[in-house]
Design a protein around this nucleic acid. Sequence first.
DNA 1: CACGTCACCTGCGTGC
DNA 2: TGCACGCAGGTGACGT
Length: 279
Amino acid sequence: MPELPEVETIAALLRTGGPDQQSICGSQVQQAQVLWARTLANMRPRAFCARIAGQTVENVARRGKFVVIPLSQDTLLIHLRMSGDLRVEAALDADGQPRQPEKHDRLLIDFMGGQRLAFNDMRKFGRAWLTADTREVLDRLGPEPLDEALNAERFHGMLNAHNRQLKPLLMDQRFLAGLGNIYTDEALHGARLHPLLGSGQLSLDEAGRLLAAIRAVLNEGIRRNGASIDWVYRGGDFQNYFRVYGRAGQPCLTCGTPITRLVVGQRGTHICPRCQAHG
DNA sequence: CACGTCACCTGCGTGC
DNA sequence: TGCACGCAGGTGACGT
């Protein structure tokens, strides 16, 4: 799934529009269709459709990996998990008939004025919440890695408050909001840190390096409109600039040593064994 | 508290 | 060709 840069790209496209689509801001919901009930995290389909109808989209933002869509009464929160995607299209086809859902569409929101927001999610892991109080969903998230209020000293303190394997800690959304498997591997390589290092052992210098590397990969991901892999989210090209992720056996772009793959916390993990020597 | 395992889902690539 | 298996950008519930 989309990690922070992909979610940011998707949210920005919905908020400001793009070459082939308009912004959804200011649009009023005409009706919704729920094609897979479990996509709704906190409501049943009938209640969701009744409650969202008539509300107007005020903005589209992001918090961690959540797409945050404030409406006139409630807020729609969407988490894309592994395979989710959001697209905007015309609600009616060329003949004026309601457009048929695409394969794996789970939720459709039609607006007055003829636009449709479609939540497509092959693996059905994605979730949507409609709530008047976003805190009940977002409260558990850690800080935003790109928030300037976070600095090396604070980050060092956060890391040292635990003694956990570095990679699973970075991917824990309660610790820091937005990193997933790809950007974590890329950031650890950028910081020359092994994913299994104990977070409690990092020095201030290492914490500062790690925070800078996290921001560098996230900012580059955003600048390139995210990564597009296989059938999941298309649009960005950051996948062409990975330095370790998916490159097992290929030379490290820094030192030439073959990249190796290991498993950390059940997730495929890619490192340069020379640049990221353990201990 | 930290870590491992499994569950939730569908689809693709690989090897027999 | 068929089929089993491993793998996939995430998260949460358990058990140890």
